[in-house]
Write a protein that binds this DNA or RNA. Structure first.
Length: 533
RNA sequence: GCACCGUUGGUCUAAUGGUCAGGAUUCCGGGCCUUCACCCCGGAGAUGUCGGUUCGAGUCCGGCACGGUGUACCA
């Protein structure tokens, strides 16, 4: 702790010097990234558009943004979409709009541009191709032709012998002529980085002090995949340098691969940025926050009716505190008082009880009745949702006083489930669980969230399970509405969206007594055995 | 397995090596109040463990325990 304090002091004075320098130099030069590195604080968030917008992304983005903006620097958003098979444009859109909803805005990014673009890695292939040539030429990277079979066998053997797993340097001994002829013959290959086998890599983490990792722990990482695209490690380093990133603030999960990154900077002859590894947000069981165990999508919090300012505030309380101890603070206040050395390293548990309290505090203290009305109305009844709800309700009511009860499932979060709610004369409890779990998996994999595709997916699933659609839908009705009779369950699913649907199906599953790990595995096998049209 | 990073009430956190380890949440009790909630007051509850340095350790050093992460042609 003392150590932390003295580091904090030292850093603050160093930052002042750098800042002053940037004022002097920055006024005269506007060119290479090297100048930017020397002169300006530049941080980034580099999400991979492979799924729901994650609260962990927002968390790291928040700290990067506060760090940069508290020192007159810039905060950049870069899309890391080198994994062609998993990246989607939809996910990218969701990430941008979620961060914007939270008020975490960026100075440069794929949507707003900037001097260091493009800000999407899939548009930077030429840059990576060019840069890998440098490493290939100076011998710090090499072509590898090993098949995945050989690599698998190698790994198995290493594990059996209880040795460290990793590449054995097989292709390191290839001559240039050999490499050229095999490449010329069209043989598939990857590019790996050479890694020393002796000694330690030492670096100074902004929060943790010196970290030493033996080079023997570091694998000869693939830099360019056989599809010609870079892996994270390579693209990340090249881009961070070219974009003038001065401080890499990222999750703790990256500590172990920092030596790879440092080595790449060295191979290129570039000055490395400062590294700062934040603690990881955790599930209540202390494992890394995951959507299997918790709602992790920012969209979930949005559709549950949390306020963006409360969620950002709450994220700011994770591993960090205001110097004056204030618990309710805005993004602006956080930025103004920001001091990265106030980050505490124990992984904070993302616990909803305190978020609820904080959100309520915002609602009570910051909203006049008319503000509340406006905010609530636009949350509960945005025009398109209202248009979808009204026709459903009109058919089923006799008088206005019936409306609220019917609409309840569509404007609520989780619903209380009565004991025995899932009793059914055709379906055994285990069958009900299967329907719920399979439906959840099926819906999660749905590409578009339209009435027809949801219906088709569920019908296909019912057929695969050899259940009558009527019986099949029963558990879903109950899970989604809390009652066996209600509005169209498919409409409800469409209107409520995946996040609320997931939460309801999950709470139904746990109301049924939960699914053990063993059961889950069996169900997974069965589910993967299904085939869809 | 190996490596790395962590460890203050259940949870989020505060504490220039020096008061009685402070605040928030949660839970419980009381007050306000027609009820509930809000709000106010009060209570319960923590430095993982063993050793070392020191006049003095939550804070510095070492061992152990526990937890987490990493060990991919994912990021």
């Amino acid at each position: 702790m003392t150590d932390r304090k003295s580091r904090r002091r030292a850093r603050q004075s160093a930052d002042v010097v750098i800042w002053a320098l940037s004022r002097i130099i920055g006024a005269r030069f506007h060119c290479a990234p090297c100048i930017a590195i020397m002169t300006q604080i530049r941080t980034r968030i580099a999400p991979s558009p492979t799924g729901d917008p994650h609260v962990g992304t927002a968390y790291i983005a928040l700290f990067n943004r506060c760090f940069a903006h508290s020192q007159g620097g810039k905060f950049i958003l870069r899309i890391e979409d080198t994994d062609q098979s998993r990246s989607t444009a939809q996910s990218e859109q969701d990430i941008l709009s979620s961060l914007r909803w939270l008020g975490i805005e960026w100075d440069e990014g794929p949507d707003c541009g900037g001097e260091y673009g493009p800000y999407r890695q899939s548009q930077r292939s030429d840059i990576y191709r060019q840069h890998i040539e440098t490493l290939l030429a100076n011998g710090s990277a090499f072509r590898c032709f090993c098949s995945s079979e050989r690599l698998d066998a190698l790994r198995r053997q290493q594990m059996q012998e209880k040795r460290q797993t990793g590449y054995d340097g097989h292709c390191l001994s290839l001559t240039q002529a050999e490499v050229d002829s095999r490449v010329g013959a069209g043989e598939e290959s990857v590019v790996r980085m050479a890694v020393p086998r002796e000694g330690d890599c030492r670096f100074n983490d902004l929060l943790r002090g010196e970290v030493a990792i033996a080079w023997s722990q570091i694998d000869m990482q693939i830099l360019i995949k056989s599809d010609g695209l870079p892996t994270y490690h390579f693209a990340n380093v090249v881009d961070d340098h070219l974009m003038g990133i001065s401080h890499v603030i990222r999750g703790e999960e990256w500590i172990n691969s920092t030596p790879k990154h440092l080595l790449l900077y060295e191979y290129f002859g570039w000055e490395a940025p400062r590294f700062c590894h934040m603690p990881l947000l955790r599930n209540p069981d202390k494992s890394k926050l995951s959507k299997r165990k918790n709602p992790t999508s920012i969209n979930y919090y949005r559709s549950m009716g949390y306020l963006p300012q409360a969620l950002v505030n709450y994220l700011g309380m994770m591993g960090w505190s205001m110097p004056d101890g204030a618990e309710k603070f805005t993004l602006t206040q956080m930025t103004r008082s920001f001091d990265i050395s106030r980050v505490s390293l124990g992984g904070p548990i993302f616990d909803l009880a305190k978020l609820d309290w904080l959100n309520g505090k915002y609602l009570r203290e910051d909203f006049a009745a008319e503000d509340f009305i406006a905010a609530y109305a636009s949350w509960a009844f945005p025009p398109d949702k209202l248009a979808a709800i009204v026709p459903l309700i009109m058919q089923r009511v006799d008088k206005f006083s019936d409306v609220a009860e019917l609409a309840k499932p569509l404007v609520s979060g989780e619903l209380p489930l009565e004991a025995g709610a899932f009793e059914h004369k055709q379906l055994a409890p285990s069958e009900v669980q299967r329907v719920l779990q399979f439906s959840l998996w099926r819906l999660e994999s749905l590409a578009d969230w339209q009435r027809d595709s949801i219906e088709a997916a569920l019908q296909g699933l019912a057929a695969a399970m050899e259940l009558k659609i009527r019986d099949f839908l029963f558990p879903l009705f109950v899970a989604m509405s809390g009652k066996p009779v209600s509005l169209s369950v498919i409409e409800a699913i469409r209107i409520l969206g995946l996040d609320i649907t997931r939460a309801r199906l999950r709470s139904a599953l746990s109301a049924m007594g939960g699914v053990s790990k063993k059961q889950l595995k069996l169900l997974q096998q069965e589910f993967h055995g299904f085939s869809w049209p």
